[in-house]
Design a protein around this nucleic acid. Structure first.
Lengths: 351, 351
DNA sequence: CAATAAAATGAAATCGATTTCAATAAAACG
DNA sequence: CGTTTTATTGAAATCGATTTCATTTTATTG
């Protein structure tokens, strides 16, 4: 098992086959003609040594790394892991390799990662839920991402207004409005929101949308019914606990995402509140967990397939033609489940 | 935004600074002495162009890719995503990049991935819950992994008996026994198991352990109380539904992993069974979800920190010294929660 | 101040595969 | 049979950074 052994190269193969390295390379890539017998001989020797050409050397010459970078805030969030699974599976078939990086929703970390991925010469960087834009984008940040984008195409899976890079995102405004309308139809008039983080644009925007919707439907939302506490399950738990400790509280709560909703749900159940009637809850993203726990969590789902198709298409089309496309907006769709359905108990046995 | 523009190289920098490429390289790496003023000049020019050396070229010369491959069956499973998060975060600090691949628990896919990662010349391959060994390892498979291991060190995070590669895994036998003992103490005598897949050794082994434990504690386990249906939440749901449809059923169920347990839990609740009393449930892995949903799921947890420390240590020590180490076995620890605790309702308000 | 040690530097080789280019051999043609 | 194509081939250049090696410059010492 000595790793000191030098790696086999095309030259070694060439020598053994009594041909030149060029010929071996031609056999390997299929570029250029090779005498049928020599080809077979070379193939036999390649097979014998189980020779695999170094893709590092190959990348250097070809100026193509056949790899892409994928940045997520936290791979532990099922929304991101599902998205990654879809994308990775499809890109793998096409011979691409995906480098996954966790940014922890920290701006410095994100920039470090972008630098690193550029050095690695990935062909595309997919930035999901990035925060580079910041809520109030400093000019520097904007420059950063555009400069980087100048060298390696970036595709963001969330909205970065004003940044010149290919963007794909869900129609979150529509999604939030769908939820609020649903709350309204179920008779709720006092709405709260949990989850999110001050400096993340996406969180900020969803909050704005909520307020707009609440306003439009003539409902109420007090400022202390907006509890942040981040994007995690634990955050959802903390936020809901804070919310429930208030003297007066909303009857319906919109969670920043499904993960936060799951964390919040346990608090509601622990407190013995009647779901849907005493306290309704809805999340966002449409992760599979929302339908796998009882009672199902109402959510607006993103179109995973559409997203990953688009990402794969973008990666595949790199080099050929345009580098920058119009924003692509996907609709979200509301899925009503137990956490907002007051008639739930009629369907399933009473617990 | 023309990407046709040639990439900047050390030579371009060198020319602009009026020095040789070697000097630029010395500034870049810190190897070898450089005149203080020239150094500053070069640094200024590097800064000006935001020059980043190509790590592809660097890897070729240095014969070190500073990247590792991480193979999981399914990144959507929180066990794997948590493990990945821990490992990636730590390796990133050390300047490593991690390529994540989903094997879907399919043997051919797994071998394809191993080949691909070798070509990419990753420095280490981490194989979590791999199936290369197969339940009854064909000689070919064994040869395959050992041949691969001969070139790039493989570390497995599950047991591969007889394969010469560095292995780290939990003491699953102890874990299963802990659970069964707990079931016994809670008064259960009829035990079932859900989840898993025929040809995956880990699943097979956990089943064997369960049967041994059941036997040791003088409990009962019928063959139709062992329902497989894979490793997913949906699988857990299906399996539990099958189990509950039986005329006679166990009073305690061990789920192959926590994800399966979550899927099963919803079925139990839907059927209105009294958790812990009428039907107890326990999983394995210790994913955070088990404590974030109500009622908490009893589980035996792996030591994530120990695992990831070990992985990082292994990666860092590559090249220096040994390539192959003794198996490392970590203890698991039982965490009792609502799904097995009959007194649960005394602690929390009645729902 | 001569002699020796230490510091700086660039040209060229290197990593491993691909590709260009020119040369050769074989085939086709008139 | 001489000439033009076409098929094969290998030597050498290339990708971009690092490193060795020999050389020059500067500093130190007796």
């Amino acid at each position: 098992m000595k790793s000191s052994e030098r790696r086999m190269t095309v030259y070694d193969i060439a020598k053994e086959a009594g041909v030149s390295a060029s010929t071996v390379s031609r056999v390997l890539t299929g570029n250029g003609p090779v005498n049928e017998q020599k080809k077979e001989l070379v193939l036999k020797i390649l097979e014998k040594h189980e020779f695999r050409p170094s893709s590092v050397a190959r990348s250097l010459k070809a100026r193509r790394s056949r790899s892409v970078g994928f940045i997520v805030p936290d791979i532990t969030n099922p929304f991101f892991s599902s998205m990654f699974l879809e994308v990775e599976t499809r890109l793998a078939v096409a011979g691409y390799t995906v480098i996954l990086c966790n940014s922890e929703s920290r701006r410095e970390r994100e920039l470090e990662i972008l630098q690193m991925l550029m050095e690695k010469e990935v062909e595309v960087i997919v930035l999901t839920g990035g925060i580079v834009d910041d809520l109030f984008p400093q000019p520097k940040m904007l420059r950063d991402i555009e400069k980087i984008n100048h060298r390696v195409p970036i595709m963001t899976l969330s909205k970065f207004p004003g940044v010149r890079c290919t963007q794909a995102y869900s129609d979150e405004k529509q999604g939030v409005f769908d939820i609020v309308r649903h709350f309204h139809e179920e008779g709720h008039r006092k709405i709260g929101m949990i989850g999110g983080q001050m400096d993340v644009r996406q969180a900020f925007e969803r909050k704005i949308y909520l307020l707009e919707a609440v306003n439009q439907y003539g409902m109420e939302c007090r400022s202390n019914w907006l509890v942040e506490e981040g994007f995690s399950m634990q955050g959802g738990t903390r936020a809901m606990e804070k919310l429930l400790s208030l003297p007066e509280r909303p009857s319906a709560v919109f969670a920043y995402n499904d993960v936060v909703a799951v964390g919040a749900l346990s608090v509601i159940e622990k407190h013995g509140l009647k779901l849907g009637r005493e306290l309704a809850l809805a999340g966002m993203d449409g992760i599979s967990l929302t339908e796998s726990i009882y009672p199902g969590i109402t959510t607006v789902a993103v179109d995973y397939a559409a997203f990953s198709d688009y990402v794969v298409e973008f990666v595949m089309n790199q080099g050929k033609g345009e580098q920058y496309k119009e924003d692509r907006v996907f609709p979200m769709h509301l899925i009503c489940r137990g956490t907002t359905n007051v008639n739930r108990d009629a369907v399933h046995p009473v617990r």
